[in-house]
């Protein structure tokens, strides 16, 4: 696995999603200037921080643990245990609820069309659950 290296040189918008929090939440704010209406997008930035700490997530964690084969846990250290976890698609399989909400946003930003916010929002909602709460910050 390689470190994903992104450079500011050339067109850097390809990795826009990964710096979204900087563009939208950092940077200079001058109080005498207004900010364009970001209805939707402001919610998005907040939403990507939300861990879906809900019944669904808990159940999914429990099931994921049940599925893990820990029979080698006797004296083996972590590096041995996680061998293979990185490859073979295990990561994708285990993505699930944790990143689901963020993936929806990622999709909406990566799609080539001029995606309006409303559909992305709907999609995101459907991938998280109603009683999600903000992760402790």
């Amino acid at each position: 696995m390689t470190v994903m290296q992104q450079s500011g040189g050339g067109k850097s918008s390809g990795n826009l999603y990964e710096v979204l929090d900087l563009i939208l939440d950092k940077g200079l704010v001058i109080d005498v200037f207004a900010r364009v209406s970001l209805v939707g997008i402001e919610l998005l930035t907040v939403d990507v921080r939300i861990v879906v700490a809900s019944v669904d997530t808990y159940l999914r964690f429990a099931e994921a643990c049940n599925r893990l084969d820990l029979t080698t846990s006797g004296g083996a250290g972590l590096p041995d245990l996680v061998n293979g976890a990185v490859e073979g698609g295990a990561r994708n399989k285990s993505k699930g609820a944790l990143t689901g909400a963020a993936d929806a946003l990622k999709d909406s930003l990566r799609s080539d069309g001029e995606e309006e916010r409303a559909p992305a929002k709907t999609r995101r909602r459907s991938s998280s659950s109603g009683d999600s709460r903000k992760e402790s910050e």
Binding site: A64, C65, L70, S73, L78, R91
Partner: peptide, 21 residues
């Protein structure tokens, strides 16, 4: 964290979690 690796890590180091599992 790679989720599966992190799950293994917490189960590996917490005996109580492992037993419950």
């Amino acid at each position: 964290h790679i989720e599966e690796a992190a799950l293994r890590a917490v189960l590996t180091e917490d005996e109580e979690l492992r037993r419950t599992n």
